[in-house]
Write a protein that binds this DNA or RNA. Sequence first.
RNA 1: CGGGGCUUAGCGCAGUGGUAGCGCAUCUGUUUUGGGAGCAGAGGGUCGUGAGUUCGAAUCCCACAGCCCCGACCA
Length: 586
Amino acid sequence: MLLSKLVGRTVKETPRDAELVSHRFLLRGGFVRQYSAGVYGLLPLAQRSIAKIETICREEMNRIEGQEVKMPCLGTKELWDESGRYGAIGKDMFRLNDRNDKPMVLCMTHEEPVVFFARTELSSYRQLPAMMYQVQTKFRDEPRPRGGLVRLREFAMKDAYSFHTSEEDLQNYYWRAHEAYMRFFKRTGCKNFVSVMSDNGMFGGKFSHEFMMLVPSGEDTLITCTNCDYKANQEIATSPFDVKYSNAQPLQEIETPNIKTIADLSKFLKIEPSSTCKAVMFQTKEQELVIAFVRGDLDVVEQKLKGILQKELIPAKDAVIAAAGAVAGSTGPIGLNLSKCLVVFDKTIVTGSNFAIGANKDGYHLNNFNLERDFLSGLTDWQKQRVKTGDVAAARAGDPCPSCGHALQETRGIEIGNIFHLGTRYSQSMNSTYLDHAGIAQNHVMGCYGIGITRLLPSIIEESHDERGPILPITIAPFDVHICILNKKEGATEQKAMEAYNALRKAGIEVLLDDRDEKPGSQFADADLVGIPLRVIFSPRNLNENKVEFKFRDNRVPAQLLPAEEIVDFIKKTVAEEYLRYSVDE
RNA sequence: CGGGGCUUAGCGCAGUGGUAGCGCAUCUGUUUUGGGAGCAGAGGGUCGUGAGUUCGAAUCCCACAGCCCCGACCA
């Protein structure tokens, strides 16, 4: 490809709206352009790069017996009603009506369409297990798109769905998919990534893993152990915490004027925040108050709370708080109207003792609160139905690891892939069955596996760049080699470069040739912005000595001067070696 | 959906009531050629939209929209 003809120009100035490094370089390098919030077009550089990502992805999916399919983006209300998600998913799903006013959706994921395939095509145990995958555009009306290509409303995802006759078979396949993902990310040049245990959401089945690129700009917080293999998204990460035990003291009511926060309360009572109990309030869509009690030094993880209650939560409104008899600033369990609220106690409150807690009376708190003695033991049977205990607190850096007890640490990550156990969540609701040995209809046991194709390019740039631009792995770079011609009009410079260009292309190497009559500085700056890993520079200065310059984009070794007649063979060899760096053993 | 900011040429910006500007980019010519050069010239605008105030509005008032950031949310 001749750079002079390439659609997509580089720009010197950093676009005002771009905050993330990857966003800045993708715009400045002429990879992408924005159409509207969360909607981008891919120019040739990005399109080529993403096509390579897709190819590697297909190879890895095929390797685990995946069969590529293509399901429609456009879906009907009827199909999404079968799983119940037409109603369960809120505004995140794009909805539209066809010409006859029939309600339609733009699919944000494809469990429903794939089950549509499975229930007619996978009707015998003889066909199982089976996996179908596609690379398809997804539409999600994100409340807030952000970070350039990191969070989009329209993006490409590789989504895969596997069908099994048993949980055991699914588990086996799940770990094969896990391995395929590790291979895929290594091959695409991801360096610092991990798989962590993650939240399944409301409909996701029993377990799941997220693949996370560890970069400071990541949106997710990960909790990892400094000693063992424990790794989890903070949404599900847990810790035994450091619990102090002491003998139960008598419950006392204390006057606490104008004390509304944990910080104020612990200061007033001269105790550690970990000796207090805080109330965090949400509500359900049915106007039911939800109060989570957690040790004062900890925070509540909303996803954990949702998991325990199996309900959607929104911030609590004053009227709902008042209706349940909760007093903001002094909220406590005693005196609540349990018919109007659900209460969840974190395990830190179950196992700890003598907490300072709200008295549900403005200006008062209780001290030496002990959950069983002071609250649970006095509940009637129906009240007990309204009170749950569980793990709702966020593990933090420094807390003990649940596996080995060593200190945990926090890391930021971008989610670049996930694998989910789905079980029979969709096959049951959508009546998707196969006949087993005995001729009895059984629901398919399912797993699903996603990779954020579009998101991978910015994620890799986030972890692989310098101040001048991206440093792309050869496996996903838009071209293998970038050739600059300095002072093309002088002598045979241009002719020599073109000869090398044609010879390399004949050898199947993808070359971007800067054939513009630009100053060296401009050419180098643009080459840095495009980020192709290998660079060759033809100049009269060096050709006078019969030499050509070669360098790596990442400057891993100093630039080398090579005899002109050797450059083609040298590049062929170097390109092959470069691909080898990202290969994964069979 | 809350809070904040922004919207003037392709990009980055200046312009507080009186003929719409600068830098970069683009095009022409010329000089120059190892880290974003110089000179000379040219093209490019419904100043986000609508409605007001005014003799006159990019500028003042009102409404709306779009975009970005923080938060909420993220199946």
